[in-house]
Design a protein around this nucleic acid. Structure first.
Lengths: 219, 219
DNA sequence: ACAAATTTTTAGTTTTGTCTAAATATTTTA
DNA sequence: TAAAATATTTAGACAAAACTAAAAATTTGT
């Protein structure tokens, strides 16, 4: 498999996982930042290799082989992200770009050893689950901070948007995975929140709150 | 730069470093396991980019930009090799292939952090020097074990041949970098050696002895 | 339901890196 | 030094992955 093929497979997986039922040529072209005609070409090729189901004009989906392939690439990507943060001291907004390259390195043994070095982590630095060797995929059914009622307490377990801008905003405000947070007040007008985060009070917009995954805890 | 361009640059550097004055199209083709015509094409391209000096029918050499590029690739390759052995527990015969892939990852910061994680190593697992950030290249003027006189003691500091077969042979006989060795006897007939290596006596052929770099020590 | 708008595919071109076969240049040797 | 052998380059082709422009299919709106 070429890097390009792997990137297409990954993109299809992510679109499907984002709840899109029919993945259109255009949607995939946009995700891949390429032209629809290039997508058509690639789908023909991936279809011939048995990685996707593809019928002209009818969208695309992964075969089971394609799904296994996608999970293995995502596993590599996320393990490398953990490595970059835990072992090399990168911040969580810097790792995606480098992991995009590292995920294409071919060596089963390398990934197994890396997994071991990192102590078999189950989540990457953004809180996304790391598929296991056999593709077991821990789907997190987390809530968004914006969905919690006033007064509830929760642990920050992930981010929905993992763009560098958002992550840097979180860093600046000392919001990190594992933080304990409590909702003190919700502003009716704009749905912004006053929260307590690790002893400190903070005011955050609705947009922020709806991009933070949390897990409710009892007090 | 593409992976392929980087591989050509590296190959030219290694040939030049092996003492070959004029690097011919054929020699490079053989090293790269490709056809001479492909080499000619690539030389035209690398020449346009200012990485090599190239005149038709007259061989090729690296420009200073090309040399800097080669050193940076070799630095990455060797640092990754150290990582694979030291941190992931690979044996020294396994690392080359994986490092061939990892050396193409683009991120200055990644390499600096890796260097730091590994404690700024000066040699790779085969005893080859790791170029510094600015291309400082520690040329080792080591002797071959086969060149030492009888009775002398030395430390094993590197291998000349770093093929997997040779390295696995060394492993099997517990010969590793850092080992102290003493020459007990040289067989006149075939130049094989009886040596003492970390308390153990071993009989090795001339071919083995002339592929081990050593550094003489006083008793 | 049919024209208009949109989406998707096809056809033809480009770039990179490779190849084979043929042509040309250089080196060797007798 | 001229013919033979060898080395190198050129020319033309191919595959992968992209692009543009045009054609075809599908969906939408009235």
């Amino acid at each position: 498999m070429t890097h390009s093929e792997e990137n297409y497979i990954k993109a299809i997986f992510h679109l499907a996982n984002a709840g899109i039922e029919v993945i259109s040529t255009n949607a995939l072209a946009e995700k891949m930042e390429t032209k629809p005609s290039s997508v058509t070409d690639m789908m023909r090729r991936l279809s011939e290799k048995g990685l996707v189901h593809y019928k002209k004009y009818q969208g695309v989906s992964l075969t089971s082989l394609g799904t296994i392939t996608a999970l293995s690439i995502i596993r590599k990507h996320r393990l490398w992200e953990v490595f970059l943060v835990e072992k090399l001291g990168f911040t969580w907004d810097e790792v995606h770009e480098i992991a995009e390259q590292l995920e294409h390195i071919k060596s089963e043994k390398l990934i197994d050893k890396l997994d071991e070095l990192l102590n078999f982590p189950k989540f990457d630095p953004h809180g996304d689950p790391i598929p296991g060797k056999n593709g077991e995929f821990m789907e997190h059914d987390n809530q968004l901070l914006s969905q919690l009622p006033i007064g509830s307490a929760a642990l920050c377990v992930g981010v929905k948007d993992s763009s560098a801008v958002f992550l840097r905003f979180l860093d600046k405000n000392s919001i990190a995975l594992g933080n304990k947070m409590k909702i003190l007040e919700k502003e009716e007008f704009d749905n912004s929140l006053r929260i307590l985060i690790d002893e400190k009070e903070l005011h955050i917009s609705q947009q922020i709150a709806s991009n933070l995954y949390v897990k409710k805890i009892e007090l």
